[in-house]
Design a protein around this nucleic acid. Structure first.
Length: 285
DNA sequence: TCGCCATGTCCAC
DNA sequence: TGGACCTGGCGAT
């Protein structure tokens, strides 16, 4: 599940569930002994940068990256004591009224302000950051002979993008995934960036990646009317039913018809990840 | 029940 | 560039 929208929503959830109050912390699985240093301390803040989550717990900084398979659902206790951890829980946080179980993370560590700054500094602009400097992404992209498909997964170009947004956004802009970054026009990059700034917040609000034109229109209509804040707040990060039917233009649709031109969608392995794209109508730079 | 795959990243060759 | 690592779900057996 975890592209940038997931982590930003998670940060918000952690702030709301635990912010300002002490938490009990432990590592049921036993692989994060430092959890003891968080136990009983107050959660001061939680922030997402791209796919990285940093939680300030008094003097400590907890650094979490979910990787490909990690999850960190934040669930209400609802009166009952926290159920015993099911599966391999690396870190459990228990507050007055919520419990959060971290499983399968790529990173779960205590860190220093200096290291956090270094991690953040290495990231490119984050479309979910209102102060993001998109020009930094462009500078990196335009100087590279690597393909646009590779570059969109480079967190130094745009922080928080993952494989779904990459495939979908390349298709939305009819971009040839195999053209080098250096061939992309400034106008193409700006249109791409503007689209990401539009799409990622929908992902945060609905807890799912929304890239189909009709769904985007409906999602924006609901957001403009502030009709989904309760829905957004109710999301826990657990697998639940989706607000919109889960569908994409190209992602995981190999062999099916491109919704724009009808040509069969292709799946290529690129750097270990599966690139889904339409070889017929994705021809621009 | 098994094996494969996944919205990620790093490291060794 | 291929494998390692982390976990869970699903389709094939």
């Amino acid at each position: 599940m975890p592209e940038g929208h997931t982590i930003h929503a998670l940060a918000e959830r952690v702030r709301r569930a635990f912010g300002g109050r002490p938490v009990a912390a432990c590592s049921p699985q036993g692989r994060f002994a430092e959890a003891a240093r968080l136990d009983g301390a107050r959660v001061l803040d939680a922030r997402a940068y791209g796919k990285h989550l940093f939680v300030d717990v008094e003097a400590e900084i907890l650094h979490v990256h979910l990787g490909l398979i990690g999850s960190f659902p934040v669930l209400p206790l609802a009166g009952a004591p926290a159920a015993p951890p099911v599966g391999r829980v690396r870190l459990r946080l228990v507050g007055d009224d919520h419990v959060a179980d971290l499983r399968g993370p790529l990173i779960c560590a205590l860190t220093t302000p200096e290291h956090r700054d270094a991690v953040v500094a290495a990231l490119g602009p984050d479309p979910l950051d209102p102060n993001a400097a998109e020009g930094r992404g462009w500078d990196r992209l335009r100087r590279s002979r690597r393909t646009v498909a590779e570059l969109l997964l480079d967190q130094g170009v745009a922080a928080g993008l993952g494989n779904v947004y990459r495939c979908e956004v390349l298709h939305r802009h009819r971009l040839d995934p195999y053209s080098p970054g250096s061939a992309l026009t400034r106008a193409s990059w700006e249109a791409l960036w503007t689209d990401l700034v539009r799409l990622l917040p929908l992902g945060v609000a609905f807890g799912q990646i929304v890239t189909m034109p009709d769904d985007i229109v409906e999602a924006e209509r609901l957001l403009a009317r502030d009709a989904v804040s309760d829905y957004t707040a109710s999301l826990t990060g657990e697998r639940l039913g989706d607000y919109f039917e889960r569908r994409f233009a190209v992602y995981q649709r190999a062999g099916e018809a491109c919704p724009r031109c009808g040509h069969a969608i292709r799946a290529d392995k690129v750097g270990g990840r599966t690139l889904y794209w339409c070889p017929s109508c994705q021809d621009r730079h």
